[in-house]
């Protein structure tokens, strides 16, 4: 059973609390959305789970194994991949070289469905192009595909739709569907509420570093405290 369990996870920088007492479960094949206002600690949460930053307290458990504070490469090798909020590719080399590196560094071979995904995003005819020269939207998708190319069991996506045109956001749906078909569970941090609503059967709300709510979007988003947390963030919820 590939399950991600987060128990009372906490992160502080010096005296500054980023988040604390975060606990949740991502069951095998699950799909979980994480929302919250800017500065709520969402990206740091992904960084801590994936080993990019150290935890100040609590545990991260993957498949019953404690992976808290394991280095990022070890977490990746255990089957947990993450994407980055900013476009993140090897900029000076071709699309195919980027994907080749992801497959190679991941060490589990190319996943089933990789070619289909490249086709779906229109990356197949551009395999020879330097990744930095691609349009922003495609660079972003390439970043997601690279995370998938490591054949992960769990995928953490950090704002995959941020910066994308409205028409391009459908690609994120396609990505998530394909990744889940390939057997990966997905945690998705996102500001685009439409996307969260149509994709995620269950969401977490993070506000000022604490877990405010956990449940189906229809229920959670109707809660007054969640609405209050989002006041002043109207453009995001539009």
């Amino acid at each position: 059973m590939t399950e991600l369990r987060v128990e009372s996870l906490a992160k502080r920088f010096g005296g500054l609390r980023v988040f604390q007492d975060i606990s949740f479960n991502l069951p095998e094949g699950g799909l979980l959305g994480v929302i919250g206002p800017n500065g709520a600690g969402k990206t740091t949460l992904i960084n801590v789970i994936s080993g990019r930053q150290s935890a100040s307290g609590g545990r991260v458990i993957l498949d019953g194994r404690d992976i808290t504070n394991r280095p990022a490469h070890a977490v990746s090798r255990l089957g947990l991949a993450r994407s980055f909020q900013q476009t993140n590719t090897f900029k000076n080399v071709s699309v195919s070289e980027n994907i080749a590196r992801a497959i190679r560094f991941g060490g589990r071979g190319a996943p089933v469905g990789l070619d289909r995904m490249l086709d779906a995003f229109g990356l197949t005819p551009r395999l020879g192009e330097i990744s930095d020269k691609l349009p922003y939207g495609l660079q972003k998708m390439l970043g997601l595909v690279m995370a998938f190319a490591t054949s992960p069991k769990i995928l953490l996506l950090d704002e995959p739709a941020a910066g994308l045109e409205r028409t391009e956001r459908q690609n994120v749906d396609t990505f998530v569907h394909n990744a889940r078909q390939a057997g990966a569970s997905v945690l998705i941090v996102e500001h685009d509420m439409d996307l969260i609503r149509r994709l995620c059967p269950r969401i977490l709300v993070l506000d000022a570093g604490v877990l405010l709510a956990d449940g189906p979007p229809a229920v959670v988003l109707a809660r007054p405290d969640v609405i209050a947390a989002y006041l002043g963030e109207t453009e995001e919820t539009a």
Binding site: S50, H73, A74, S76, A81, N88, F105, M146, T150
Partner: peptide
Amino acid sequence: RQHFAAIEENEILAESLGLVV
């Protein structure tokens, strides 16, 4: 070549993809 270039260009990405930098 691939490993060294990946570390030179983007060490954080290389590590998150599983490279033991």
